[in-house]
Design a protein around this nucleic acid. Structure first.
Length: 678
DNA sequence: TCCCCCCCAGTTTTT
DNA sequence: CTGGGGGGGA
């Protein structure tokens, strides 16, 4: 094993020989290197790789760690090493031990489908639904928040609907709506059972409950799981801990985390869980890594300043082992187009004159949506890029159409799947589809359905739909073939339904779906694992919607990512977009100190990604409007408001701004000019 | 009554 | 780029 790159602290952490450990490590101190090193060390010591489970928050992080372990070992020693997200891991366990968890023939549903189910429930329970002014999506938020935090319904309503307020008026309101919400949530659970649906939280709960209540189940798994290596431990929430706890007696825990990088409280994560580690985990130790290997001192000075100005104490001051470099640059921009142009020109200059590759550049944004103009400019200037974060591949409408056909064969009780598949066809709307579905739900099994589906629907539609059903049914052992057959029968209608952008954009996703299908042995696996799959990452290679990347571009591209998806990433040159008032902290979060501090950590994560050069852009318009019209609240809470001048270099955009014509937003015409009303 | 199509609004962050 | 709403047509 090649471990010569480890320092003394890291080596101690990698070769830890106690039972459970938490490695507390600041940004850039080698957290990932530690997990990679640990896995390689264990395998080197003779542990079977299939009994080591690496748990991460994103699929990409899992893949990357596994790849790096493989690269650090010889002879395919790590071939069967397992790295996955919590959800994917649970799904795999459920599939592998159908008798243990009792969940076969189920369909894992994504948030879109959850919403559809909840809407059906609200339609069924109109009396209760009308009695509360809460939208179906908010009901799901309450439900999921309650399950993830293991808080009760009243408190979940308080957090999600009333922003945590505890005054008497709020309490009275909660008392009034709580029973009605309960009726709706219980109806949602019933509907899930009827449709044999499993939502994301169920994946964790099914495994957790079984293991907690059944010593025999723990005994079986104790032979399979010896080591749990858990990344980003500060982001685990109570539900995840509820799942992990029964493994304490089975496996050895190896957790790494950093409380200053906890940015998932909206999903119920509590950064204090790292502080509770020693209390909750007997026979455990805490190790600390504090040498930063990533960034220059100037970048760390700014990052340190940011968390030092927090009312919370992180007891963290990163020191660069790499020494000094250039100061972070703060650029005031007047519009998103100027920002996009500046970044594009800067990257092109680095590429052509400074001997840098595209992959040396990382662009970080608070939201996916905000990067759209940037992407337009990159396409215009032919800069290859990959986006992380945002919509999943399987969530695109045209993919869902194709997959809906596969879903109903996998689970004939999948009403959501039927609704999508039936209404896909011309002349069938929700009403007709509903009538067909009530007939379909009476079929005994898939075979019964295959034989009688045509008659149940009737006409040429029935013929067409039954034909597709049957060809998938015949090919259920070959997922790729099933997809191809389905597509060939749906192609005409797809091209018609999406005529505006079918040829240019959506059609090219079909081969990607086929490739995805090749990875799975059954349709059930495709739809449960596939919805957890990221759009841009396929067989380890980024796949872009719309543009076909050639080989060299696959290897060399700029990365555009949300901060949340950028955990663990680093780059030579980093651009943090739109660090403006109302964004850091964001306007929604201003009312809560906890949320403001979470936003501070979001910015902290963003800043600490940079190795050598850090560019921070901010919108001058929002600065001036805030100063002139709004109360001081927004400005006083803005993170860069009291930024010491010596920490950054104010920087003027040196490039001429050219607005490409085809991406130009129409100018707003001001019709109030020319008239003096005085 | 049901279905289709066009237009508009509004988008945190993730599994 | 999707979801909802409104209007027109069958």
């Amino acid at each position: 094993m090649k471990n010569h790159i480890l320092n003394a602290q890291q080596k101690k952490a990698v070769e830890f020989d106690g039972k459970h450990v938490l490695v507390l490590a600041g940004a850039g101190t080698g957290k990932t290197r530690c997990i990679v090193g640990r896995a390689a060390f264990l395998i080197d010591q003779g542990m079977e790789p299939e009994k080591i489970q690496i748990l991460t928050f994103t699929k990409r992080a899992a893949n990357e760690i596994v790849e790096r372990v493989k690269a650090s070992l010889t002879d395919n020693q790590a071939q069967s090493l397992n790295g996955s997200t919590f959800h994917s891991w649970c799904n795999q366990l459920i599939v592998r031990y159908p008798n243990l968890f009792g969940a076969s023939g189920y369909t894992v549903i994504d948030p879109d489908d959850q919403l559809s189910v909840m809407k059906m429930v609200c339609g069924d329970q109109l009396v209760e639904y009308k009695g509360i002014r809460i939208k179906p999506q908010q009901l799901l938020d309450i439900y999921s928040y309650g399950r993830n935090t293991r808080k009760n319904l009243s408190n979940s309503i308080r957090e999600k609907i009333f922003k945590g307020k505890t005054d008497e008026e709020t309490n009275d309101e909660i008392d009034i709506i709580r029973p009605k919400v309960e009726v709706l949530l219980r109806a949602y659970q019933t509907k899930k059972s009827e449709g044999r649906y499993i939502d994301y939280d169920d994946l964790l709960l099914i495994v957790a409950n079984r293991l907690r209540n059944d010593a025999e189940a723990r005994r079986i798994l104790s032979h399979q799981v010896k080591h749990l290596l858990i990344d980003e431990f500060q982001d685990t929430n109570p539900l995840q801990w509820y799942l992990l706890e029964p493994f304490l007696e089975i496996a050895k825990f190896y957790c790494v985390g950093d409380d200053a990088q906890s940015i998932y409280s909206f999903r119920g994560a509590d950064y204090k869980n790292v502080h509770l580690f020693k209390e909750r985990v007997p026979e455990s130790e805490i190790l600390i890594l504090n040498n930063n290997y990533r960034s220059t001192q100037e970048i760390l000075d700014l990052s340190n300043w940011l968390i030092e100005t927090s009312p919370l104490e992180y007891k963290k001051k990163l020191v660069a082992t790499r020494g000094s470099g250039t100061k972070p640059k703060l650029i005031n921009i007047a519009s998103q187009w100027e920002e996009a142009n500046f970044i594009a020109e800067n990257i092109l200059e680095n590429f052509t004159e400074n001997n840098k590759n595209f992959i040396d550049h990382l662009i970080l944004s608070r939201s996916t949506y905000y990067t759209k103009p940037l992407q337009a400019v990159f396409i215009q200037k032919k800069i290859p890029y990959v986006t992380y974060g945002g919509r999943k591949f399987m969530e695109a409408a045209h993919i869902k159409d194709i997959v809906s056909a596969l879903r109903v064969v996998n689970n004939i009780y999948d009403e959501i799947g039927w609704m999508r598949f039936l209404t896909f066809w011309d002349g069938i709307g929700e009403i007709k589809a509903g009538k067909y579905i009530s007939k379909i739900l009476e079929f005994k099994d898939p075979l019964d359905c295959a034989q009688n589906l045509e008659d149940a629907i009737g006409g040429t539609e029935g013929e067409k739909i039954a034909d597709i059903y049957n060809s998938i049914f015949m090919n259920s052992g070959n997922v790729k073939k099933a997809i191809q057959e389905t597509y060939s029968k749906m192609e005409l209608q797809l091209a018609f339904k999406y005529r505006k952008d079918w040829e240019e954009k959506r059609k090219s996703d079909v081969p990607v779906l086929e490739m995805l299908g090749e990875n799975y042995a059954t349709i059930g696996q495709l739809i449960s694992e596939g919805i957890l799959e990221n759009a841009k990452q396929l067989n380890g290679n980024p796949v872009l919607e719309g543009s076909q990347l050639n080989d060299s571009e696959i290897k060399d591209h700029v990365i555009i990512s949300t901060v949340h998806s950028a955990k663990g990433l680093e780059a030579d040159v980093c651009y943090v977009l739109n660090v403006s008032p109302k964004v850091y902290p964001s306007a929604w979060n201003l009312s809560s100190d906890e949320n403001i501090e979470e936003d501070r950590r979001v910015l902290y994560v963003a800043l600490t990604r940079a190795k050598n050069e850090l560019y921070i852009t901010r919108d001058t318009n929002s600065i001036t409007t805030v100063n002139s019209s709004e109360t001081s609240e927004v400005t006083s809470k803005y993170f860069l408001e009291n930024l010491p001048e010596n920490l950054t270099e104010q920087f003027v955009n040196p490039y001429t701004i050219v607005k490409p014509r085809d991406i130009l937003t129409p100018n707003k015409i001001d019709l109030s000019e020319g008239m003096d009303f005085s």
